[in-house]
Computed example of a mutant assay.
Amino acid sequence: MTDADGAVVWDPRQYLRYADERGRPFEDLLGRVRAETPGYVVDLGCGPGNLTATLLDRWPTATIDGVDSSVEMIERAQRLAVPGRLGFSVGDVRTWAPARPIDVLVSNATLQWVPGHLDLLPTWVGHLAPGGWLALQVPGNFDSPSHQTLFALAAEEPWASILAGQVRQRPSAPDAATYLEVLASAGCRVDAWETTYFHVLPGDDAVFEWVKGTGARPILQALPDEVRPEFEQTYKARLRAAYPPRDFGTVLPFRRIFAVAQRVAA
């Protein structure tokens, strides 16, 4: 299924299946944000809100807003809302603007879905209060077997003809040096780095279950019900060859790119 404008419909339950592994980069990202007592914190691309909610303890005096374009994700996040402290709303990160300056702006595993998002970053810096912080993290694994296999399979028949014009975008992101350059040019002190995690995933077809909740979802969603099972079975078989199951689980190497920027006070 798609929503009214043909966008991807996300499944919070599938996404949260590997909540611990998906949460680790968020923790590492926020560990480099040195804000002590921010008044206003925003999480752009907050998803189901489970990570956003952890900021309540990190900054107990802050007002926190989570924004996401997915109605399904925000409906799930609303369960975590705390009146006066933590709120969630549907919004497009490309056009969203705050009503007041932000002390900490977080965007975790979101910008890879936004074409041309480097052009957004100076605008986001402009939303920061003097001395405010911008922290972002994006996957950097688009050349990994999980993604290469997916798009190679989608280019094969009979699926290529079915998917023609249906898959709008392949998520991507630049490297850490590019984020450093853009944010430094926007008037920030910048800390940029990358990390490769080696997730050990339990269960059968674990890598498929991982990508089913994120990178593979647009293609799987675009396939009609009558052909999706065959595509999934073929994809699973190729993933098992690329990521052989071990006795202790399946190892998924996952590179991620980070940048934390502080707006230089005027």
Results as ranks from 00 to 15, higher is better:
residue 3 D to W: 05
residue 4 A to L: 12
residue 5 D to N: 10
residue 8 V to R: 01
residue 10 W to S: 01
residue 12 P to E: 00
residue 13 R to N: 08
residue 16 L to Y: 02
residue 18 Y to M: 00
residue 18 Y to N: 05
residue 18 Y to Q: 00
residue 21 E to T: 04
residue 23 G to V: 10
residue 27 E to T: 15
residue 30 L to W: 03
residue 35 A to N: 07
residue 36 E to D: 14
residue 38 P to A: 09
residue 38 P to Q: 10
residue 43 D to S: 07
residue 44 L to P: 05
residue 62 A to Y: 04
residue 63 T to W: 14
residue 64 I to V: 10
residue 66 G to L: 05
residue 68 D to S: 02
residue 68 D to L: 00
residue 71 V to I: 13
residue 76 R to S: 15
residue 78 Q to H: 11
residue 80 L to E: 04
residue 94 R to G: 01
residue 98 P to C: 12
residue 99 A to S: 14
residue 102 I to H: 11
residue 104 V to K: 13
residue 108 N to R: 12
residue 111 L to K: 08
residue 115 P to G: 06
residue 118 L to H: 03
residue 119 D to W: 02
residue 124 W to T: 01
residue 135 A to L: 00
residue 144 S to C: 05
residue 146 S to D: 14
residue 146 S to T: 07
residue 149 T to E: 14
residue 154 A to V: 01
residue 159 W to Q: 09
residue 162 I to W: 08
residue 169 Q to A: 11
residue 171 P to A: 04
residue 175 D to G: 15
residue 176 A to I: 12
residue 185 S to H: 14
residue 186 A to D: 02
residue 187 G to H: 06
residue 190 V to L: 02
residue 192 A to N: 06
residue 193 W to S: 13
residue 194 E to L: 07
residue 194 E to T: 13
residue 206 A to N: 03
residue 206 A to D: 09
residue 207 V to M: 00
residue 215 G to Y: 05
residue 221 Q to N: 11
residue 225 D to T: 14
residue 229 P to Q: 12
residue 231 F to A: 12
residue 238 R to G: 08
residue 244 P to I: 05
residue 244 P to Q: 01
residue 245 P to H: 03
residue 250 T to I: 02
residue 253 P to K: 08
residue 259 A to M: 05
residue 262 Q to D: 07
residue 264 V to P: 10
